[in-house]
């Protein structure tokens, strides 16, 4: 029992990372129905900007986070404007392939620009392990931070999408782009804003990932990005609390598989879960069923 609780705690800490990344995926998907494959690479860029701000420019972590969010948003919006926007009218296949191309480009470009070494991320926030119940369970300051940030981000997103004017515009664009533009909404700007938010979330996730796992690397975004996408689908893609739920579930599943079976089966199990969910309830746990528009 003790071990089970310990493993669930391990899973929650991993899950909050997935949740944080999944929020960015779900945000973009919710508005323009595009799997932004490059989200993991936006995260990587965010992490490197954070690293340079701290290690080279000597900024504190909050300034580093802001700068990293700014640069990532810029990259995100640029990607959208250059690569995705011209394809808005083409089939989904083309956009998806472009997104994959973007992801490959940023990964390989990253390897050339940043090199292939793992870069130690400066530990600007002290890692303090808190031992609970006489050391039976351990929670670290970083885990609490990431958990708190992911919950906070989810609430913030819910608020923006649900209760602000721009959020209303986003929902309108999501529902029907043409009708939205007829109502006087600048669809381009709304989509760019979506990418700003998505990329900022990615940047936060990247910096926190660097802090938490102590290194950054040009390919650091790929696997977590993929897993986070699975999490988003699991919870119901496009549904903000779903990303959260999916992230936590995925983290716990991984921890339990590693703890009670074997780490090497963790990834296969994750993808099996994805496929089962897709077959049984393609809209995800919290998703609403919609019929296809013809």
């Amino acid at each position: 029992m003790e071990t089970l609780i310990a493993q669930i705690l391990n899973g929650l800490s991993l899950g909050s990372i997935y949740a944080l990344i999944a929020l960015g995926y779900t945000m973009v998907y919710g508005i323009i129905q595009l799997i932004n494959f490059a989200h993991g690479e936006i995260l990587m860029i965010g992490a490197y900007v954070g690293y340079f701000s701290v290690a080279v420019l000597g900024l504190n972590i909050y300034m580093a986070l802001l700068l990293s969010m700014f640069v990532s948003s810029l990259v995100g919006v640029l990607i959208e404007r250059i690569a995705y926007k011209p394809l808005r009218k083409s089939g989904r296949l083309s956009v998806l392939i472009t997104a994959i191309g973007m992801s490959l480009l940023l990964q390989n470009g990253g390897l050339i620009v940043f090199g292939t070494d793992f870069v130690p991320f400066p530990q600007v926030i002290e890692r303090i392990p808190y031992r609970l119940f006489g050391g039976r369970f351990v929670v670290t300051s970083h885990q609490i931070l990431i958990f708190a940030v992911s919950i906070l981000m989810m609430l913030l997103l819910q608020y923006i999408v649900g209760y602000t004017k721009i959020g209303m515009a986003m929902r309108a664009v999501s529902y029907d782009k043409e009708a939205a533009s007829l109502m006087g909404i600048n669809v381009d700007n709304v989509i760019s804003f979506t990418f700003v938010i998505g990329s900022s979330l990615g940047a936060v996730a990247g910096v926190l990932l660097g802090l938490y796992y102590q290194t950054i690397h040009p390919l650091m975004g790929f696997m977590p990005g993929l897993k986070a996408f699975v999490a988003a689908v699991l919870g119901g893609i496009g549904v903000i609390p779903g990303a959260m739920l999916g992230g936590f579930l995925l983290g716990i599943i991984e921890a339990l598989v590693s703890g009670y079976w074997s780490t090497t089966y963790k990834d296969p199990v994750v993808f099996v879960v994805l496929i089962v969910i897709l077959i049984v309830k393609p809209t995800g746990l919290l998703g609403k069923n919609t019929s296809e528009k013809v």
């Binding site: 472009t98 994959i100 191309g101 490959l104 480009l105």
Partner: peptide, 13 residues
């Protein structure tokens, strides 16, 4: 790989 990915994007565009 950079060349291929750029080609991929350009062709799609």
């Amino acid at each position: 790989m950079v060349i291929y990915s750029v080609l991929l994007i350009l062709v799609m565009m």
